[in-house]
Design a protein around this nucleic acid. Structure first.
Lengths: 226, 226
DNA sequence: ACCTGAACACCGTTCAAGT
DNA sequence: ACCTGAACACCGTTCAAGT
């Protein structure tokens, strides 16, 4: 049973890549995309690699470390913008949208960004780029620094919202609208009156709005004494 | 060994409250405050109530339901503001600060708000109040509705940041500053140059800033065509 | 030197069996 | 009718024992 007639080229055992940190992260990302975040367990990732959970600890410090590495890999794929004072605001939108899309492409990862904010090289590159764009826009250093934090939060939050609303967002919004309008108007007059506004927009529109509001707020501060 | 001489009033067995949803939530909140979020397990909550985990399922739909109920209890404690056009901006800060403090007083609960946003009556009351304040400030309905979402996010995020920075925030900021200034200046010129700004401010200051920026952004839009 | 089976100390949730 | 012990199907992590 051990001398198969299958042709044995130099690549006879094709896939079965040797274990490595990258292989572990790849397997974990594949699992994340197919089965969601709670499927990313040490045991399941190991099973996907045809080994036991214990073997992963050679390449990864544990589940939290693995999640961090996954974040880094995703963040590193975000293409940067070369700051241009003539179109900085558009560049900001482009960069943040790319970040949001990278997270949305990996459902569940956004939630991990909130509990364990990334402090990796990849995220620093992003901060550097964001600072460049904001400073190109004439935003003061302190404002740019604190705004970078706010924008990062908007990206994560919006991606999380998109994760939650993935299934039939229009129907979810409609259900929310019905729930709001059905509330007792004497107790929730404004929620009832603003039901349409509260449920308006998909997560792209809401994201764009949030970025615009913060940007407008920054501009309102520019050149104004602290 | 079973007939103690201790005086036996009508309250001989003092604490041992009968199980109820409130009792379960109380026990869970106590555990949250003393041992953190990961200590809030069905088994440990049950143990604190001198029973088995299975007994909790009569009063609570499961761990997620329990966490939701805990959120609601905390949110319900937030005192509201009576919207006044003359001082709406101050009222907004007051309300949001109260929300933030309520979350910070229960370390770990903020993280659960991000993954499972509250849709309870208590949070609707808060949205109603926020809308009232913003509309009193002359903010347009659509802006107020979307801004309510952004402010809620700022509150949760800031509380989460405070949770993370609980231990020695000044030293953490100093360590971050050292890390930033130690970066290669050719690759991260702006992060190095803005190290002081990036690490400036405690979480109260950063929170106040974020609320102010968003408010300024809203005002910049007020009366401006969409 | 490298890898891993089996164990440890936990989880949330269910349900048959008890009172 | 109410409660719960014990079981089920999982976790992350460690480490002695194997190759």
């Amino acid at each position: 049973m051990n001398a198969p007639s299958r042709p044995r080229s130099t690549r006879a055992r094709p896939a079965k890549a040797p274990l490595s940190e990258d292989a572990v992260i790849d397997a974990a990302l594949a699992l994340l995309q197919s089965d969601g975040l709670e499927a990313v367990t040490m045991r399941r990732v190991a099973a996907a690699l045809d080994t036991g959970a214990a073997s992963l600890y050679v390449y990864v410090s544990g589940r939290d470390g693995l999640l961090q590495s996954m974040q880094d890999r995703i963040i590193a794929t975000i293409e940067l913008e070369d700051p241009d004072p003539a179109r900085w605001r558009e560049q900001l939108h482009t960069l943040l949208d790319r970040g949001r899309q990278a997270l949305v492409a990996h459902p569940g990862i956004a939630a991990t960004l909130m509990t364990a904010p990334p402090s990796s090289r990849a995220s620093l590159v992003l901060v550097e780029n964001m600072l460049g764009i904001l400073l190109a826009g004439g935003v003061a250093r302190q404002d740019a620094a604190w705004a970078a934090d706010i924008f990062a939060m908007l990206v994560s939050y919006s991606a999380m919202e998109a994760d939650v609303r993935r299934a039939d967002p229009a129907e979810q919004a409609a259900a929310l609208y019905r729930a709001f309008t059905a509330l007792p108007a004497d107790q929730f007059p404004l929620v009832v009156a603003c039901a349409a506004q509260l449920t308006a927009g998909d997560s792209d529109e809401r994201f764009r709005y949030a970025v615009d509001v913060v940007t407008d707020g920054l501009l309102a501060r520019t050149g104004r004494p602290a």
